[in-house]
């Protein structure tokens, strides 16, 4: 392991580089947050650990890529389309399949979603092959200067939409009747059933919303990285790292966890070595699992 201490100190003492790294990490982290939000929502309400989350994100990425290549649609405009498609997919998946496993042991549900993940990622591999798919937008290399900071426009757009969608989700859960019903079902399932809420529909809706969020996140992610089938499971794990860091089931936690991971990856990439950046994330996951399994923002079981 070549840990070059000199370049480490050079990097850390370079204020401009550090500031840019932090900003870049925060912007990427916001997109991570949106991606992980869906995982958190699904777990918080349906109590199912969605092991196919990164795979769903990749479905969103390939969808956006197809729309860009064949219809000339900007990934930002593809977002509503993919969100709607993934909402439908998530809804049907919960209604048709996962719902039949609610009474089964936790590990069986987990393995069920492992199977879904295998199918999604490898179908993508069959359809698109292992090569990286990428979208060229005309603002790809534009950036704005704010003092010493160089901000990539593409990252600002992605992060901005991530914030917007997150706020929409917040508003949905806080102000709409359906959103309140879902929260009621999450807090007290029996109570929700007693007052006549159709929890199966609410669960399916929730799964749909979670899938839509990660689908939209996939469209934004396509602006930042290439789509390959291989990143799917990495993003599933990244999603877990983020929501476990922030506390499973907490919306705010997912966003903060996303920023935390975005920043720590960017820092690790600048200070240590890019190929070791996810080692920092896994180290963080191990620490959080051991010390504070309910996450930084989760309530104690």
């Amino acid at each position: 392991m070549a840990l070059d201490l000199t370049s480490f100190w050079l990097a850390i003492s370079n204020g401009e580089l550090m500031a840019n790294t932090l900003v870049k990490g925060t912007l990427t982290g916001l997109v991570y947050g949106l991606m992980a939000l869906g995982l958190s929502v699904i777990f918080g309400v349906v109590r199912v650990v969605n092991f196919a989350h990164g795979e769903m994100m990749v479905v969103g990425m390939y969808g956006a890529w197809l729309l860009a290549v064949h219809a000339g649609l900007d990934p930002l405009l593809a977002m509503p389309v993919m969100a709607a498609l993934l909402f439908a997919g998530g809804y049907l998946l919960q209604r048709g399949l996962i719902n039949r496993f609610v009474t089964r042991p936790e590990h069986v549900q987990f393995l069920l979603l492992v199977a879904v993940a295998m199918i999604l990622a490898n179908t993508a591999l069959m359809l698109f092959g292992p090569d990286a798919r990428t979208v060229q937008v005309d603002y790809a290399f534009d950036s704005i200067l704010v003092g010493p900071l160089i901000l990539d426009l593409i990252r600002i757009y992605a992060a901005g939409f991530a914030i917007l969608l997150t706020l929409l989700l917040f508003a949905f859960f806080r102000f709409t009747l359906t959103g309140k019903a879902i929260r009621a079902a999450a807090d007290n399932l029996l109570g929700a059933q007693v007052i006549g809420l159709d929890h199966q529909r609410l669960y399916a809706l929730t799964f749909g919303i979670g899938a839509a969020a990660v689908g939209a996140g996939g469209c934004l992610m396509l602006l930042l990285i290439d789509a390959t089938p291989m990143i799917a499971s990495d993003f599933t794990i990244l999603g877990f790292i983020i929501v476990i860091l922030g506390g499973l089931g907490s919306l705010m936690g997912a966003l903060v966890g996303g920023i935390l991971i975005g920043v720590s990856e960017a820092l690790a990439g600048t200070l240590i070595e890019p190929s070791m950046k996810s080692m920092v994330s896994f180290g963080l996951l191990i620490l959080v699992l051991l010390i504070r399994p309910q996450g930084l923002f989760g309530r104690r079981g």
Partner: peptide, 16 residues
């Protein structure tokens, strides 16, 4: 590429 894993995934769901 990938077809084997898809078959395994479907089989896993059916068995579960």
């Amino acid at each position: 590429a990938g077809v084997r894993q898809v078959v395994f995934g479907v089989l896993l769901i059916l068995v579960l």
